[in-house]
Design a protein around this nucleic acid. Structure first.
Length: 106
DNA sequence: TACTTGACATTTT
DNA sequence: AAAAATGCCAAGT
């Protein structure tokens, strides 16, 4: 199979480890698991139905275009520092860097 | 088997 | 500062 199956476990694990009121980015997860950010997005899209994907945002702090409405609702519910725009997270305060998992520790 | 689509990121114009 | 182009990996058609 592809690398996805390999990193998927670590990926979902990291997302589940994201503290409440905090968020992380696709790039950070991709780097943590050792693959491109595209994999993270697709992994979540196809297999991330069981993880708090709303805590995973873009590098810009903006939310996934597909579920940003739901994600914002979660943020307001969890107290995540949203930007004044209301459609993005304040990465300056809410960014949580995932620990490096998998066979490629720093 | 080849092309297109998809929860993205980064760099250059 | 904003928009466009490029790179990335996997699944679906």
């Amino acid at each position: 199979m592809g690398r996805l199956e390999e990193v998927l476990d670590d990926l979902l694990d990291l997302v589940e480890q994201v503290p409440r009121g905090r968020v992380t980015t696709y790039g950070a997860l991709g780097d943590a698991v050792g693959c491109g950010p595209r994999l993270v997005g697709n992994a979540m899209a196809r297999h991330g139905a069981a993880v708090p994907w709303w805590r995973v945002v873009r590098s810009d702090g903006s939310l996934p275009p597909s579920h940003r409405g739901e994600a914002v609702a979660r943020y307001r519910e969890e107290g995540t520092p949203l930007r004044r725009s209301g459609d993005a997270v304040d990465l300056a305060r809410a960014y949580w860097q995932p620990p490096v998992a998998g066979p490629a520790p720093a």
